[in-house]
Simulated scan of single mutants.
Amino acid sequence: MIAMQYSFVLPADYDMAIIRRRIVEKGSMTDDFPHLAFKAYLSSERGDAALPSLENLYAPFYLWRNEKGMNTFLGGPGFAALCQAFGRPSVRLWPVWQASLNPELTEARYATRELLAIPSGADLDAWRQRERELALQDARHGAAAAVTAYEPAGWTAVRFRLWREKPPVAIDGQIYAVGHMSVPAAVVAEV
């Protein structure tokens, strides 16, 4: 599996209603995209007291079953239209260590993302096991999905969670509103 995210930092005075409307209008286009486990349409708004953010962001997060689906999407008309509207973003990719999805995945309304530096000399198997335990703990605290992945070029890890309710724990990262969840029917049947 591959985790993927790109992010658009929008001007401080940008009307985020445009992004919310775009998500409503275009969100269903990836609902049954081949090889997709899920796509979370994420945004955050500067000055939003409920979800504090320093920036206006549009930052979809994807979980791909394999590179075939990811390559089809990145080379396809939907991503081309996004690039036309906002410019071509830098796309971050992480091989997945673990992904836990539960039936409430489609009901997610919030997301959290933490980026973590993996220390030089860290025992990667121990790190992965610790992340697995944290994911199970987050699932017990209401996470609808828990994905942990890593990027070996810069030795970072991403801890991504989807929540039905506002996250019950403080995080050292970004909190997003989920505007739409694309989850193919086959994935819903699996979880």
Rank of each mutant, 00 (worst) to 15 (best):
L51A: 09
L51P: 00
P52E: 04
S53I: 03
S53Q: 02
L54P: 05
L54S: 12
L54D: 13
E55H: 11
E55M: 01
N56K: 01
N56G: 09
N56F: 04
L57S: 12
Y58C: 13
Y58W: 12
A59Y: 01
A59N: 13
P60R: 06
F61N: 06
F61I: 14
Y62E: 01
Y62N: 05
L63R: 11
W64L: 11
W64Q: 04
R65A: 14
R65T: 06
R65L: 13
N66E: 08
N66R: 13
K68T: 12
G69N: 05
M70P: 01
M70W: 01
N71I: 02
N71W: 02
T72K: 00
L74E: 01
L74Y: 04
L74M: 12
G75C: 03
G76C: 09
G76I: 02
P77C: 05
P77W: 03
G78A: 09
A80M: 07
A80S: 09
A80R: 13
A80C: 04
A80T: 06
A81G: 07
A81P: 01
A81H: 09
A85M: 08
A85F: 05
A85H: 06
G87L: 01
G87H: 14
R88I: 04
R88Y: 11
R88N: 08
R88G: 02
P89Q: 08
P89H: 13
P89E: 10
V91R: 14
V91N: 03
V91S: 13
R92K: 00
R92Y: 03
R92H: 03
R92W: 01
L93C: 08
L93Y: 12
P95G: 01
V96I: 15
V96A: 01
V96M: 05
W97E: 03
W97F: 11
W97T: 14
W97Q: 12
A99Q: 07
A99V: 14
S100L: 12
L101S: 00
L101H: 15
P103C: 10
P103T: 08
P103S: 10
E104P: 04
L105S: 10
T106A: 10
T106D: 03
T106Q: 09
A108S: 15
R109W: 04
Y110W: 14
Y110E: 06
